[in-house]
């Protein structure tokens, strides 16, 4: 079983949702990223999403844009991100790592070489924001060959008719972008989730993670009532920027505790 599938199988048995914190690689430097990844894994992160910096992050709000800029200034590259994954894996072989980024650095690396190297480094899944299902034949065969999960984004604008097409070839989990907008701006309400999650459930048996605008333990708990995982990004990046790694890890622990208080809402 893949690391991601194993995590969700265990959590199902425990009856709780997963916490997926996000780390922008190299923000503000490589050493901090290693500290964050290692620390998050022991402070309640079930899976960690690593943002791969890109000059033109079109789906991201000001917080992740600025983080990406700092990261590139610190010398970030896709090769460097895989190197971070290798270092993390030398001490942790169980926490799944998912890379989230944009297509061009992958194309530039070469799709075959990248999927091979990523799998060998210990990456478990890929989220490529600007690669919709219509263009996914560019990545899917190579990712599948190397046993990397290709995690699809589903948006509020994705119609019921379109869902099966978007889910084609996806594995690991599905990522529900809970608002129409960029990262770190608005937050979906319980009513939004009650409306949106069941229709995705009907279309897939994969776990559903909810992201974009999740900021507090309370939000995370609300999400856990409906979905299988909460993804937290901008709030943690802002905290890191304002304070330090230790404080971010406290927040991660608080988010994890928040998830444990969640009351499952029957679908």
């Amino acid at each position: 079983m893949s690391r991601i599938a194993a995590v969700f199988a265990n959590l199902r048995a425990e009856g709780r949702a997963a916490l997926i914190p996000f780390v922008e690689a190299y923000d503000p430097n490589r050493a901090t990223t290693i500290e964050l990844l290692t620390g998050m894994a022991t402070h309640g992160a079930d899976i960690i999403e690593i943002g791969v910096p890109f000059t033109d992050p079109m789906a991201d709000g000001p917080t992740i844009q600025a983080a990406g800029r700092r990261a590139l200034d610190a010398g970030a590259s896709l090769h460097g991100v895989l190197d971070i994954v290798r270092e993390f894996r030398s001490a942790n072989n169980h926490t799944p790592l998912v890379l989230m980024g944009y297509l061009n650095p992958i194309l530039s690396y070469g799709v075959d070489a990248f999927t091979q190297d990523a799998a060998a480094a210990g990456v478990d899944g890929l989220i490529v924001v600007d690669l919709p299902t219509e263009e996914c034949d560019l990545l899917l065969p190579a990712a599948t060959l190397n046993e990397l999960d290709v995690i699809r984004l589903i948006a509020p604008t994705t119609s019921d008719e379109r869902l099966p097409k978007v889910l084609e070839g996806s594995s690991g989990f599905v990522y529900y972008v809970s608002i129409t907008g960029i990262t770190g701006t608005r937050t979906a309400s319980a009513a939004d989730l009650a409306r949106d999650i069941p229709r995705i459930r009907r279309a897939t048996s994969l776990p559903i993670a909810v992201g974009f605008g999740v900021r507090t333990p309370e939000h995370a708990a609300t999400i856990a009532g409906f979905a299988d995982a909460a993804i937290v990004a901008s709030a943690l990046i802002e905290k890191l920027c304002a304070t330090n790694v230790a404080t971010v890890l406290e927040d991660v622990a608080a988010l994890a505790a928040g998830l444990r208080t969640a009351v499952k809402i029957p679908a």
Binding site: V129, P132, E134, E135, R152, A155, T157, T158
Partner: peptide
């Protein structure tokens, strides 16, 4: 039909925009 001129073009946008 996929919006390509040879290997160029296409529709590389986030899912939120794809239906639009």
């Amino acid at each position: 039909g996929r919006g390509r001129f040879g290997e160029f073009g296409g529709r590389f946008v986030a899912e939120t925009l794809m239906p639009l």
